[in-house]
C-alpha cells in the first residue's frame, strides 16, 4: 500500500502504575493501517486489545513509542487537539452501543458531530443520510428503547460514519448481539464506507470477514496476516 497511513503505531508501549508495581499492558507494538483497509484485532481477554484501540483512538496516551493519525503525530498534542482529531478523523463503535436513551436515533447520530463544528442543519442532514445508509431511514425518530439490539448498533454505526472519518474503531461491536445479527452488523460496517476499519473481536468467525487479521497476546502482536502472510 502507498500513501499516508490512516493510523501508524511505532514501538508503542503502555504501562500502568498498579498497586503491585508497574503493569505493562502493551509492549513494542508496531502497526500500520492504510486508508480503506479493514483489520480485525483478535486476542483473548486481557491481551491488551482494548488498550490498543484506545491508543489508536487518542483516548489513551502511550507511555512509549509514537502514534500518527493520518500522518500527524499525537505525541505533542494537548487534550483539545486530540479531541479535535477524534471529532474529525475517527469514529467509534462500542459493544454496548452507548446511545443516549432519552433522545431519538437522529439526535444520537447528531451527537457524533456535535463537537465537529458543523452547523445544526448540516448535522441533521448528515445524520438523516447516515441513518438511511444503515437502513434505518424510517426509524429516525425512535428512541433506543424502541429499537432492537441490532438496530441500536446500526444507529451507533451511523453515528461513527456520519462525519466521514478516516478510521472507524470498533470494540467488540457484535459482542452484545446474537450470531446472525452480529454477522449482518459486521457486513454493514464493512460495506459502508471507504474509511479504514479496525474491529476488535475475540470471535474468529467475525474476524474472518475482514481482510486482515492481527493477533495480539500479552500486549504484543503475535501475528499479522499482512506482514506474515499467515491467516488468523
Amino acid at each position: 500500500m502507498t500513501g499516508v497511513p490512516a493510523v501508524e503505531l511505532v514501538g508503542v508501549g503502555r504501562t500502568y502504575d498498579a498497586s503491585g508495581g508497574p503493569l505493562t499492558v502493551l509492549d513494542d507494538v508496531d502497526l500500520r493501517i492504510d486508508p480503506g483497509e479493514q483489520v480485525a484485532i483478535v486476542g483473548p481477554s486481557g491481551s491488551g486489545k482494548s488498550t490498543l484501540l484506545g491508543i489508536m483512538g487518542t483516548l489513551d496516551t502511550p507511555t512509549r513509542g509514537e502514534v500518527r493519525i493520518a500522518g500527524r503525530s499525537t505525541a505533542a498534542m494537548d487534550d483539545a487537539e486530540r479531541s479535535d482529531v477524534r471529532a474529525r478523523s475517527l469514529g467509534f463503535v462500542f459493544q454496548q452501543f452507548h446511545l443516549l436513551t432519552h433522545v431519538d436515533a437522529v439526535a444520537n447520530v447528531e451527537l457524533g458531530m456535535l463537537y465537529h463544528g458543523y452547523p445544526r442543519s448540516e448535522r441533521r442532514r448528515r445524520a438523516t443520510d447516515a441513518l438511511e445508509r444503515v437502513g434505518l431511514g424510517h426509524r429516525t425518530d425512535h428512541r433506543p428503547s424502541q429499537l432492537s439490539g441490532g438496530e441500536q448498533q446500526r444507529v451507533a454505526i451511523a453515528r461513527a460514519i456520519a462525519h466521514g472519518p478516516a478510521l472507524v474503531l470498533a470494540d467488540e461491536p457484535t459482542g452484545a448481539l446474537d450470531q446472525a445479527t452480529g454477522e449482518s452488523v459486521i457486513e454493514l460496517l464493512l460495506g459502508l464506507d471507504d474509511a479504514a476499519v479496525a474491529v476488535i473481536t475475540h470471535d474468529a468467525a467475525i474476524a474472518a470477514h475482514l481482510g486482515r487479521q492481527v493477533r495480539i497476546q500479552d500486549g504484543r502482536i503475535r501475528s499479522d496476516s499482512r506482514t506474515a502472510g499467515v491467516g488468523a
Binding site: S83, F92, Y115, H116, R159
Partner: peptide, 9 residues
Amino acid sequence: LRRAVGARA
C-alpha cells in the same frame, strides 16, 4: 462517549 466523539475536557 462525548469524549470519544471529540468533546474536549
